[in-house]
Amino acid sequence: MNDVVNSTVRAAGVDIKDLRKSYGSNEVLKGISLTVEPGQVVCLIGPSGSGKSTLLRCVNLLEQPNAGTINVGKFEATDPDVDLNKMRQSVGMVFQHFNLFPHLSVLDNCTISQMKVLKRSKSEASGVARHNLERVGLGHLADRFPDQLSGGQQQRVAIARALSMDPQLMLFDEPTSALDPETVGDVLAVMRKLAQEGMTMLVVTHEMGFAREVADRVVFMDAGVVVEEGPAENVISAPTQPRTKEFLRRVLDPTHIGVEEA
């Protein structure tokens, strides 16, 4: 309990090698290699359909890759004999549409897998859940139901739910894309805090400001391949690849009022 309270995380790294994934004849990941060191924050950016969400979902095997290897901490995720449930306990996942359990209260959302999977007692699970709800600033909403909360609050509950399993790695799949603009900041603030506490994070996002500020590395993907990667200030502020430049120009200046390139 003590190491939960002082918020130091045992972080795990991720090592992805030559990962391939196809849906039928449509190859969405064409040999991706990517390393995330323990405690690092890596942001995946790129146009929609570039395969970044699929890549993220392959890490905890919500999608089954066709080829390549993924190592998460001490687990080899792509080993057919891996204990998937055991591995997933150490990998928290936050979805674009929250996916909170609507039939359970906020507190029960955060306790159910602690009790059913980690076999924690009700009181211990509640303690951990309340602590994590405090961490995301929602301790006072423990008794509400998900649909009584705003989108931003729901997403923060989803983060608390994932944290309650004491993960060593957190996956974020466009966590702010479904939110009203005024609630985005609260969610990003929680994620920023988590990064500062040393959590390993792999984040698919369109929030370039967040990526520039928080990410140790930014990976730009397009059409199933990694086009460019490196420190945030390089990839976002001084991209070298034409496709990265084009993408960033569209994202950072969506109205195209900016100066046309000469």
């Binding site: 449930n85 997933r88 909170l100 999977v117 994932a162």
Partner: peptide
């Protein structure tokens, strides 16, 4: 997404 969320929390 309900099944996915549950599975990603480690539930069989």
């Amino acid at each position: 997404g309900q099944m996915e969320a549950a599975r990603s929390l480690g539930m069989p």
